[in-house]
Simulated scan of single mutants.
Amino acid sequence: MALLLRVVLASFVTLSLSVAANADLSNQMKVDQSFEAVKEAVQNAGLTEIIQIDHARLAAAENVEMPPSRVQLFSDPGLNAEIMKHEIRAGLDLPFRALSFDEAGALSLLYTSSDFLAKRHGITDAPLLAKMDDHLVAVFEQVPDLSAQKVESTRVDKDFAVLELRSQYGVAETVARLKETITAQSDTIWFGEIDFQSEAKAFGVELVPAQLLLFGGPAPGGVAMAEFPAIGLDAFCQKLLVYEGDDGKARVLFNDIAAFADLHYQRAIEPHAMLNKRLTATFKGAIE
């Protein structure tokens, strides 16, 4: 009888693990399908693909488990130039991005709307904001079954969750130093950079030197996102906006991870604060 009980229990455990594995696979497939549908919609809308990042698979390669999550960045460089001419610091929230992810077993699709951009950066140009939303509608109306949701912005105000450092160098030197320091981190992947000033020139718009640096840490990012997958919209790919201040020296802006966790989930955990401290110390070491 005892042997039979052990066999039954073992079979139950095996079945439970199999069901859980199949559920994980199903959730991953849903996220992958959502991601691909949005990617096709972006292409159909005539927008420029920038980068796509598979948070969960990158984390899994570092033996860190987290829910399925994939983010894609896409762009209208001409609109970026118009927005940044109005407010250079808005480059921290450009280009467009959409996050397909598993939230407690359910598929979610999240994006940042013009309302968030307007509140965070004090942009009041209504036609400009409407143009941004027109692009987003052109993408997400192609995938109505995915029920894309805007980032909640009622608690967002000017400079919400913006961490800022001042460099003692100009933009070019600051970017070079930051890139060298970031790529020296053994647990970090460099995804690339966007030169907003150069892009703007192609549209006849003059901007001060401004670049967006894109990188991520799959292992620490996976830990931070495990219970907070929605923060993958604004972190891991971590974004650094480097632009020229009035004194000719660079300003460096990046996102407060703990604040975004609190925005999405009304709470944050120690790994979020630790990552904020690590990133701040790393960037300071490069530019001060």
Results as ranks from 00 to 15, higher is better:
residue 177 R to Y: 12
residue 92 L to I: 05
residue 201 K to M: 07
residue 261 A to T: 13
residue 77 P to M: 01
residue 182 I to H: 05
residue 138 A to N: 13
residue 21 A to D: 11
residue 75 S to G: 12
residue 220 P to T: 10
residue 105 G to A: 03
residue 13 V to H: 07
residue 185 Q to S: 04
residue 210 A to R: 06
residue 152 E to P: 09
residue 21 A to Q: 11
residue 251 R to I: 03
residue 29 M to W: 12
residue 287 I to R: 05
residue 56 A to L: 08
residue 177 R to N: 14
residue 180 E to M: 12
residue 161 A to P: 01
residue 74 F to I: 02
residue 178 L to E: 04
residue 88 I to G: 04
residue 150 K to E: 10
residue 37 A to V: 15
residue 253 L to F: 05
residue 124 T to K: 13
residue 286 A to S: 12
residue 142 Q to S: 12
residue 278 R to K: 14
residue 146 L to F: 09
residue 186 S to M: 08
residue 89 R to N: 05
residue 40 E to G: 07
residue 128 L to H: 03
residue 263 L to S: 01
residue 268 A to H: 14
residue 241 L to C: 06
residue 84 M to P: 02
residue 194 I to P: 06
residue 65 E to T: 15
residue 223 V to R: 12
residue 53 I to N: 06
residue 157 D to K: 08
residue 97 R to F: 05
residue 199 E to M: 11
residue 274 M to R: 14
residue 45 A to N: 04
residue 6 R to Y: 09
residue 181 T to G: 00
residue 4 L to R: 09
residue 60 A to G: 10
residue 195 D to T: 06
residue 163 L to W: 02
residue 87 E to W: 01
residue 228 F to S: 08
residue 233 L to N: 02
residue 285 G to C: 09
residue 275 L to D: 06
residue 54 D to V: 10
residue 106 A to T: 08
residue 167 S to Y: 02
residue 187 D to Y: 13
residue 157 D to S: 09
residue 234 D to A: 13
residue 57 R to G: 07
residue 217 G to A: 14
residue 257 I to V: 08
residue 274 M to Y: 08
residue 118 A to S: 07
residue 86 H to N: 09
residue 132 M to Y: 05
residue 90 A to Y: 13
residue 107 L to I: 00
residue 16 S to Q: 13
residue 167 S to E: 01
residue 81 A to V: 05
residue 217 G to W: 09
residue 145 D to L: 11
residue 46 G to P: 02
residue 200 A to Q: 04
residue 265 Y to I: 07
residue 17 L to Y: 15
residue 115 D to G: 02
residue 185 Q to C: 05
residue 112 T to H: 06
residue 214 L to H: 07
residue 110 L to E: 00
residue 55 H to A: 08
residue 220 P to D: 04
residue 37 A to S: 15
residue 183 T to K: 11
residue 181 T to E: 11
residue 69 S to K: 05
residue 151 V to S: 08
residue 257 I to G: 00
residue 176 A to M: 12
residue 242 V to L: 07
residue 157 D to N: 06
residue 276 N to M: 04
residue 198 S to L: 12
residue 40 E to L: 13
residue 150 K to P: 06
residue 206 E to I: 15
residue 57 R to V: 09
residue 262 D to Q: 09
residue 197 Q to M: 14
residue 49 E to D: 04
residue 87 E to H: 04
residue 83 I to F: 04
residue 240 L to R: 04
residue 281 A to K: 15
residue 103 E to H: 14
residue 214 L to R: 14
residue 63 N to T: 07
residue 108 S to L: 07
residue 218 P to S: 00
residue 43 Q to C: 07
residue 282 T to E: 10
residue 165 L to F: 07
residue 176 A to W: 13
residue 273 A to K: 15
residue 149 Q to K: 14
residue 140 F to H: 05
residue 224 A to F: 03
residue 36 E to T: 15
residue 117 L to K: 02
residue 210 A to M: 03
residue 139 V to T: 08
residue 101 F to K: 06
residue 46 G to C: 01
residue 150 K to V: 06
residue 186 S to H: 13
residue 86 H to W: 08
residue 93 D to F: 06
residue 67 P to W: 11
residue 23 A to W: 00
residue 168 Q to E: 13
residue 101 F to M: 03
